[in-house]
Structure formats: structure tokens, C-alpha cells
Design a protein around this nucleic acid. Structure first.
Lengths: 341, 341
DNA sequence: TACATAATTGAAAGCGCTTTGGATGCCACT
DNA sequence: AGTGGCATCCAAAGCGCTTTCAATTATGTA
């Protein structure tokens, strides 16, 4: 069933039927009713490809999913997607996901944009001096970035959390508890959030005249396995750190296992603060020793970005171009006074 | 830059350029070279919407993502998507993801199909007597189901793992260890895999004249929190089970916490076997007591389904319509002889 | 030399929709 | 009666591509 058939069935022109469907005012209410009724009976749905071709819009947001054989999938991606989806479903938008090798992201993004089947782009996993940024700017298509790109002029539309502030605050708390030996379990080095979190730790320490030793920083994929390895490494250091900052509850999972295996007690021998993206899978309050965290919901960020993107496409703006969300510092049992030597 | 402009630039007709690009044989090799060269220089990309409109195909697989405010995102979804993506990227396919309220899946799937912007459909989270099946059959669009639908005639294309066999084998192992009191921590009751796994346990037990008490079955979302709750419940039972079958390593995570909190030792007081979807996030061999598991890679399933779907669209078939993958039973330290009373 | 055959290219129709630029009829008002 | 305004509706063009059908030229054969 297509527009032509439907209009013939109704004895109307395609024009009128189209207008009736799209809510244009110049069609008689009785006629509109008749059309809507016919749509219900026939189950007619407009062909999206044709709509897109005719209008240049088709209610879709494009995003690139980094993937490759051997490339580990990331829980955070799924959670974020859920947020995007939650908002998109309210507006009858959908996503076009282009899987791409992580080495090919710039090109993949461009292909996606030029292919003409998305109205807007979403970009995540920002890195320092991210090469996608200049490309996006040249594209004349709406986009929103999740995160920022350290080292690039912040003149692009983004939504980010205050990573530096979060880790600054977390570090300060531990300092107040009297800790002096710190370690940071971070995400991959080139990622923007990792850079900022590290800066947050470093600047809080600097205020007390402390430094973060190279030995006490790990950069790794955020899996529990990597957490375990990193923590094992920290625990073997001659000057064992007593305060751990951790970029993800997933990493914390492994880290805590290492702590337990070493016979140490979390919150007493070792204090740990993790960043909590509010993954439903892994609640910090349910850890055997509940985790002190810096919290910001990844899913909420997804919802908000979808709002901005969809709003822009529908010209429902204006939206602020840059948003920086504060995180919450939630104190639970995994942090405590530094152990007396 | 569109086809018309490109062809004018080259002094050729749109026909010839189109043919050159799509690999038709009736174009002079020299001409083809010239066209390809121009494409490189101009960065021309065909408009996918127009292509789809003209051909009815556009290299895309549609899937419905269940989502709603309050609906928990599922790690398994992301992992599966990674598998689909890994294969799709090799064929320049992409996904169209339609987010939909879980109550509205049938309609959402139909909308997606009729919208005319996907070539094939993928469906997961199968339930018993799944209402999407009759709809899919009526659609005349290729599709592959992940899982099966208990109670429906198995005459649809699917890829499933042998859930019943997996849990049958796992149960048998525990029986051989002398366990007699079993409990099952399962996924949501209506899901097909949950039904089959339960059947596997029940039939293995039946062979020894044992039964699975209602008290010893939990159905819940597969999060660590639910795992904790379920295990706490089991441990309070007057006849405490000593053998636990668990539908996910995520559930196991919480379950094990409950075991530890109760001061019991995994692999001695309590034996546990979990199903392992090979989530990179959570490796059973890294648990503090490594987990005995039934294993089947979700991601590999994604790759295979993408192969079948893409192959069908590209007429590269034939593919078997039904595939049932065996799982592996991998014995680690979380299972041991039943404790002597 | 004449004619069938193959190789290469193009004109134009069509995919299903939106939208521009009229038509048409009806009414109120002068 | 004549005019303008309004409410409705429609024909046709156009979005950017593919594909059918036909034309043109090059090649080979009798």
C-alpha cells in the first residue's frame, strides 16, 4: 500500500492525503478524518526512504559504533544507547548505527553523514585533539558530542560531565582522611575523560605538595580483569598506595578482588573511590563493602543528548551548545582514614 | 555532489556512471577508472535514501531495542550488537535501531519493516508463544531470530544455543558430585531460554527421582542485585540448597557476594554453575573462586546471525534455517562434592 | 563489401513521497 | 453584477538514484 493507492482508494489526490497525514491546516477536517480512518484500516505507512528523499529528513540519528574482531564491546556504550533510545522513542526517531573499525572512525562518520540517511550525528569516546571534530564542523549537519576533546577549542556542541572536578573532589576527600599515597586506575590514556580525571587528581594533590607517581597510574580498558591486574601491580609497590581513584565501577570490581586476595580490608587498609556511571548492572551500594563514588548517570546523558539532537532537527531549539554536568560525590564504606603506619 | 553533477563533470550519462560504480560489466574499463578516480577526488557518495527508493535495498538490518524509562539496559544486548557489527562492517551494512517500549514490540517491528528502510530484521529476547513470530512470517522480509519460541512450531529461521542441554549437563555434573538440593537462578520467566534451562534442570533431576521445589527457583532480571537477593533467599531456606544453577555470570556476581556474606565457601559449602555468555566485562576465570560455566559466546552468535541476514539479502545463500549450538561445560573451582551433613 | 554481433553509451521512466503554483467554488461585500 | 478573500483541493515537478530500452560505434565474418 502506497500513497497513490491510498489516495485512489479515497478518491483524493496524493497531495491532499499527504497533507492530511502531515497535519497541514489547509485540509478539511472531515477529509482528514476520512484519511486517518483509511490509514487505520489499511495499515498504510509512508515509505521512509521516499520521505527522506523528498524532504531531506527522516527522523534518524546516526552514530558510529567502534567494533572490530577482538575489539571488546563496552557496557557503557549499551547504557548510553538506552538513554538515547528512551528519548528517541518519544519522537518516533530511530538510529542508524554504522559499525566501524576504531581506526576508521573519521571516514566512517563522514560516510554516514554523506550517505544522506541521518539527520544528525552523535559522537562519543572523545580523545584529546580529536580528529573527528574538524570533520564534523565542516559537515553542516547537526551533531552533539558526548565528552570533550582536550586540546581543541571548545566551540562545538557538547555534553560532558566535570571529570576533572569529580576527581579533584574525590582526591580531596581522601586527602582529608589523611591519605598521602595515591594511585589512579584510569581508562585508556588517549580518551578525554581519562586526561581530565588525571588532571583533577594531580591538581588536588599538588595543593598539598604531593605528586602522583608514574608507577601509580594505570591506563587500561575498563574491564574487571584490567582492574585486577592494575591493583595487583599497585599492591606490590614498595610504597603501597592507600588511596585509590578508579575510573569505573567495572574496574573497581577487579580491583577489590585483588584487595581481598591480598588479605587487605577495603575502607580500612585501602580506600577506594570509583566513578559510577549508574550502570544498572553494577550498583556500588551493593558491593560487599559499599563503594564511595563520584556519580553521573550515563543514561541520563543519553536522554539529554537525544533531546538536543532531536530538538535541533525539529527546529524546536534553542538548546545550549555546551553543557557541563556536575557529578555527585557519594560517600559510602569504601573510604576511611588512612591507616596508621 | 550528486550523480547528476558527477556525470556532467565527467561528460558521461548518469547511467554510465551508475553502472561504473556498481560494477556492471558493460562499461569500458578505461571509463570505469575515470569514474572511480573522480569519485575519489570529489568524495562523492551515493545518497542511500535514493538508492533504497530505486532498488528497494540499502544494506541495512533492522532491529528493535526494548527501552523505556525505568527499563534496565542489558549488557547482553550490547555484546550481541558488537557481534552483529563486527560482521556488518565487512559488508558495509548498517543497523537501523528502533527503540520501542517492550509492550509495543510487535507494532514497532511492523513499523520498522513497513517503513521500507531495512532489508532484513533481527529479533531477540524471544518468549514462549512469541507474538512476533506470526507477524514476521506474514511480512515477506528476511529475518533471523536469536533464540526460539517455546510452544511455537519451529519453522522459522533461528539461531539458538542448546539451553536445555546446557543446564541438563550442568545439573548432571552436580548430581555426580552428590548434590541433592538444587536451586535455579533464572532470567525472566516468560523468556524462552529461561523456560528451556529450567526444563533441562528438571529433567536431569527427574532421572534421579529428584524435583526442583518452587521455593528454589527465582526468575528475575539478570543484574547482580537480583542475584544477591535471590541467593539470600535460597540461603534462608530450611533445607538450604547446596547446588546452584545460574543463568548468567552477572547474576552469579551478586549470588557469590551473598555466599561470602553468609560466611560460606564457594566450591565447598555451595557449588555453583553459571551460564557464561562470554562477556568481556566479566570473565568467570577471574572470579575470586573461578566459576564453572556452560559457555557460548553471545558475540559469536551475533556474527553468525549477521552473516545469515546479510547473505540472504545479498542472495549469497543458502543458509541453514535452523541452527542449534552446543554449549561447552567448563569445570573450574566453584563446583565440588556435596558437603557431608 | 555487406551484414550480423559485440561493446559501449544514453534517454527516459520510475521508485514513493512532498511541495509549489495554480485551480475551483463559495461567500461576503460593495 | 462584480470583486476579493477564503477554504479546499489537485496536477505536476522534483528529490537522487537504478534500470529498461534503444542508439551508436567497433569488430568480426562470409
Amino acid at each position: 500500500m502506497n500513497l497513490k493507492q491510498l489516495s485512489e482508494l479515497l478518491g483524493l489526490s496524493q497531495t491532499t492525503v499527504s497533507r492530511a497525514l502531515n497535519g497541514y491546516p489547509e485540509v478539511n477536517e472531515a477529509t482528514r478524518e476520512r484519511v486517518l480512518q483509511a490509514v487505520k484500516e489499511t495499515g498504510y505507512r509512508p515509505n521512509k526512504a521516499a520521505q527522506r528523499l523528498a524532504t531531506g529528513k527522516a527522523g534518524s540519528i546516526g552514530l558510529v559504533m567502534p567494533t572490530a574482531p577482538g575489539h571488546q564491546s563496552d557496557v557503557h556504550f549499551g547504557e548510553f544507547l538506552a538513554g538515547l533510545g528512551e528519548e528517541a522513542v518519544r519522537h518516533d526517531f530511530h538510529f542508524v548505527i554504522m559499525p566501524a573499525d576504531p581506526d576508521d572512525e573519521v571516514a566512517a562518520l563522514r560516510r554516514l553523514a554523506i550517505s544522506g540517511n541521518v539527520d544528525a550525528l552523535f559522537v562519543a569516546y572523545m580523545r584529546g585533539h580529536d580528529p573527528r571534530l574538524p570533520m564534523l564542523k565542516s559537515l553542516s549537519m547537526p551533531y552533539v558530542v558526548h565528552g570533550r576533546s582536550f586540546g581543541s577549542e571548545p566551540d562545538y556542541p557538547y555534553l560532558d560531565i566535570d571529570n576533572e572536578g569529580a576527581f579533584y573532589d574525590a582526591t580531596r576527600l581522601l586527602l582529608q582522611f589523611g591519605h598521602t599515597r595515591f594511585a589512579l586506575m584510569n581508562g585508556p590514556m588517549q580518551l578525554d575523560f581519562a586526561i581530565r580525571r588525571k588532571n583533577g587528581v594531580i591538581s588536588a594533590l599538588a595543593e598539598r605538595g604531593l605528586a602522583l607517581e608514574e608507577d601509580c597510574i594505570s591506563h587500561a580498558l575498563m574491564t574487571d580483569e584490567q582492574g585486577l591486574l592494575a591493583m595487583e601491580h599497585f599492591l606490590q609497590l614498595p610504597e603501597r598506595p592507600t588511596a585509590i581513584l578508579c575510573s569505573s565501577t567495572v574496574l573497581a570490581l577487579g580491583a577489590i578482588r585483588a584487595v581481598n586476595q591480598a588479605g587487605l580490608r577495603l575502607g580500612e587498609d585501602i580506600s577506594l573511590i570509583a566513578h559510577d556511571d549508574v550502570l544498572p548492572l553494577l550498583k556500588p551500594e551493593n558491593f560487599s563493602v559499599p563503594l564511595t563514588t563520584t556519580r553521573s548517570s550515563l543514561r541520563a546523558a543519553g536522554v539529554r543528548i537525544a533531546q538536543r539532537l532531536i530538538g535541533t532537527v525539529k527546529q524546536a531549539g534553542p538548546f545550549p551548545d555546551q553543557e557541563l554536568w556536575k557529578t555527585e560525590l557519594i560517600v559510602r564504606a569504601s573510604t576511611g582514614p588512612a591507616p596508621q603506619v
